[in-house]
Design a protein around this nucleic acid. Structure first.
Lengths: 242, 242
DNA sequence: CGAACCTTTGAGCGTCCTCAACCTGCGTGG
DNA sequence: CCACGCAGGTTGAGGACGCTCAAAGGTTCG
């Protein structure tokens, strides 16, 4: 099981892939390259940007506002596609940047379209992954629109834990996490100062601890209750197509 | 031009469709039905939900939180797909509800997959439409995360005007709009009371007037400047594939 | 003609922001 | 080896934006 790439592992949780599908999928991950922390794989306004599959490390995608403020739209972890949405756009509407040193493989639009023609099951799985990414953005939007800061933070950490679990990282006790409080602030629509206070509150309430690059769940069920967290939108109750 | 359906009109702005594509596309709009205001075409938790193409009227899609609060994720106008994202999901993660009396046609998953096999150009256009929808959700997220209430409102109204324009409704002077201040509040993450105050501010500043079911732009350029509005993410600079 | 829904306005309050200072750990260079 | 710079984290004080609660007027539709 540890042999499987994170992407294979994730897609297999949704669709049972044939050996042929698996070999087509393996081609997505052929041109694997290493990028340094801070490298921008795609930048806002770039024309004919590529897509990638992330195999190791953490990435974030964000937009910059006219006043220089940043809103992080999503974080990507191993097994996630990068820049898939904009593959049909003339210019990219967002930036994709490595948070850690990462490994990623470029995926050409042709690879995707080829899969649609020759591996419909795999294509379905890719569409499912894209739909799931969008569902996460939607849930993130709900988070920003209607939840107070502490609940927002709780929900965010639980989603991250759930996503990581699906690709075999971390467990109910916690996970290692390279994000800074600035990352959290820019993702959650808060200031870094307020993020710090919220984290203190959650820690003092005995729910989670976010320190020294590690998230520790001190009371997982309590956190789920606070966040009103329901994994439904992640749609990972086991393979749909067998 | 008025003969074209809104969907055809929208997709044609991106891809030049062949007569064969157009006839396949026409099949999406065969089972046209009328639904009353308030009807839920899809509801949260529904299993094996359908997708639709909206040909007339306005629709909103939203999620309800445990405490009963509502977050509207997006509004759909003629030419938009409804529930496309969840077509691969076991259960729908959101509700789709008519705001006015509407006309919409059910699109079966099979229709979509059939298009992928037999009308690759059309399939590309559908994927583009889905990507554009996602880009709008992302911009909405940025709106909630990083913009103050007045700018948020200004940006929202401008996006709506731009989308309507693409399907042939309204112009730079304004458009008719069936939304209530409660709809605006639930979309923008504000309360209806505050929405009312913000609308008054914008009106008194001579920028927009939102009254009696009509949005009137009193100073379009001023509003664009306030919102920092850039249509880039809507990707509608004319056909990409000819 | 009444009821439900929508809009409008006021007063007071709380969450989250701003500004500011200080601390820690770490890498770099003198 | 220490000096320094810098990124990240922590805490306090004060203020603003948007919320809550409340009430009343307008509009639409059965």
């Amino acid at each position: 099981m540890t042999q499987l790439s994170p992407l294979t592992r994730k897609l297999s949780a949704f669709v049972a892939l044939s050996p042929a599908d698996l070999s087509t999928l393996a081609r997505f991950d052929q041109r694997r390259r290493t990028f340094l922390c801070g490298h921008q794989l795609v930048h806002e306004g770039q024309r004919n940007a590529s897509a990638f599959v992330l195999s190791d490390g953490w990435v974030c995608s964000y937009k910059i506002l006219p006043d220089g403020e940043r809103q992080i739209v999503d974080f990507q972890i191993p097994g996630d596609f990068l820049g898939l949405r904009s593959i049909l756009f003339r210019t990219s509407d967002h930036t994709v940047e490595a948070i850690t040193r990462i490994q990623a493989s470029e995926v050409l639009a042709a690879d995707i379209f080829d899969a649609f023609e020759n591996a419909p099951r795999l294509a379905t799985a890719v569409l499912w992954a894209a739909s799931r990414d969008e569902a996460m953005v939607v849930e993130h939007l709900v988070n920003l629109g209607r939840r107070p800061a502490d609940v927002r933070m709780a929900h965010f950490l639980l989603e991250l834990a759930t996503r990581l679990h699906l690709v075999g990282v971390g467990d109910r006790t916690g996970f290692t996490c390279p994000l800074t409080q600035y990352h959290l602030a820019d993702a959650l629509g808060l200031t870094a100062v307020h993020v710090n206070r919220v984290l203190r509150l959650l820690r003092e309430a005995g729910l989670v601890t976010f320190q020294k690059g590690r998230v520790t769940f001190n009371d997982f069920n309590g956190l789920v209750a606070l966040a009103g967290f329901d994994t439904g939108y992640l749609d990972q109750d086991g393979p749909l197509l067998r």
